[in-house]
Amino acid sequence: MSRLGAMEKELLKSIKKKPATVIYPFTKEGLNIPVGLRGRWTYKNPDRCTGCKICERVCPSSAIEMVECGPDDIQTKTGWRPICHFDRCILCAQCVESCPRSVLELSAEFEMAFLSRDDMIIR
C-alpha cells in the first residue's frame, strides 16, 4: 500500500508552479487581507463621542483610558475622551461593538510594530 517516493510527482510539478512564498515586507502581494480585518485601533468619529465611558468598561484588557479632553480635541459632552494603550489592546473589537454611537473602529492597518511604548498610545 505504502510506497517509496509517493510524493515525487507532486514535487516535480511544483518546480513549474509559482512558489507559495509571499515576499511580505518587500511587497504586499498575495497577502489576502480581508475586508473586515481587525487592525489598528482608531478614534474615528470623535465628533460623535459622548464620553460615556462604556468602551473603557467593556475593554477586557483595560487598554482604554479615559482622559480629559485637551484644548485641541473635540469636546465631548462629559469632557472625557478615550485613548488606547495599544500595547495592551488585544484587538477584540469589543469596544467598537459596545460603543453606542460607532465612534471607534479597528482599521485595516495591520503593521503594528512600534519602537517605544509611548508611540503605542493612540489618541
Binding site: S14, K17, P19, T21, I23
Partner: peptide, 11 residues
C-alpha cells in the same frame, strides 16, 4: 530543496 517544496529558498 525549496523549489521542490514550492518555496523560493534563499533570495
Amino acid at each position: 530543496y525549496a523549489r521542490l517544496q514550492n518555496r523560493i529558498g534563499p533570495l
